[in-house]
Amino acid sequence: MNEPRPSLDSFDDGLADVIDLPSTGQTPTESSQRGRLQELDSLAGKIALVTGAGAPDGIGFAIATRLRLAGATVAIVSTTKRIHERAEEIDAVGFVADLTDEAEVGGLADAVTDAVGEVDILVNNAGLTSKSDPAVVKPVAQLSYEDWRSELSRNLDTAFLVSRAFVQAMAERGWGRIVNVAATAGVVNAVPAEAAYAAAKAGVTGLTKALATEVVADGVTVNAVAPGLVRTGSSTVPELQQGLDGPMGRPGTPEEVAAAAVFFCAPSASYVTGQVLVVDGGRSLRV
């Protein structure tokens, strides 16, 4: 004999429990609906760490800014002292660390916890190129093993080391968000002379999916964004020209990538994990 199906009201009550929101049992007014929507997206009381956030016009800083606007307490890290300037701009806490160094990552984890508390949200953005640290652009036949290891270290090892430093505590507390910044390179396309970068970013998506399966039952989600051509301070003229030639006629902005990344961080995104969201203005749709 079939059991009666639960009512929509009972489902709504259950959903409220899942996302830690009160259920009133009353028909909501437009005002209360709007307030509830804001609660669903609010990160008040959450502590977020964003890596690679030193550039004022970069993706990492845009993500950190949006997390702060959503109510989170934010810590940011980069390899140089300019991170303290960024931290002051958004009322965050800045740290300097080399995230390719296992010992420094361990020290960072302790320092962040002591300064702001246990991290609930981790955004692994470190690894993207900059003017001072450009990508290795060489055909595979001319690529040294040192070049190969360097690209993998800063683009893949960083995401692994920092995720490992924080994920267990998230799982033990029963709530967490990890968002990795990959790229369209290695995920949906590739360009000549950037094999190491493409391999590293493809590895980031593999790490994302594998880690998601490990903590899916612990209230921790792991997702990735894959930006295409985005206008930052490190963009080259040829890259910007490629953006102008894309379907939208322009490159993307760090803020557009940040919007996608912070979506994954929201309490309302609790049923999304192991996913890669491409942010490329439709460029990957073209053959």
Score class of each variant (00 low, 15 high):
44 A>Y: 03
191 V>A: 15
34 R>V: 05
154 R>T: 14
89 E>P: 01
188 V>G: 05
264 F>L: 13
141 A>C: 06
195 A>F: 01
110 D>T: 12
179 V>W: 05
48 A>F: 05
52 G>M: 08
140 V>M: 14
137 V>I: 14
206 G>T: 07
92 A>T: 10
148 W>E: 00
107 G>N: 13
30 E>Q: 09
230 V>T: 13
77 V>K: 00
70 A>L: 05
234 S>L: 04
149 R>G: 01
73 T>G: 04
147 D>T: 10
194 E>H: 10
173 R>K: 12
121 I>Y: 03
219 G>A: 02
11 F>K: 14
257 V>W: 08
249 G>V: 09
82 R>V: 05
157 D>A: 13
220 V>H: 03
235 S>M: 04
150 S>P: 00
75 A>S: 15
252 G>D: 03
74 V>D: 08
275 Q>K: 14
110 D>E: 15
7 S>Q: 05
250 R>P: 01
253 T>H: 14
89 E>V: 08
107 G>A: 14
133 D>L: 01
213 T>E: 05
253 T>S: 14
169 A>P: 12
154 R>N: 06
100 T>W: 11
30 E>M: 10
282 G>E: 07
200 A>H: 07
203 G>Y: 10
43 L>M: 08
79 T>C: 02
85 E>T: 15
226 A>N: 06
59 I>F: 01
186 G>C: 04
56 P>D: 10
240 L>Q: 08
4 P>W: 00
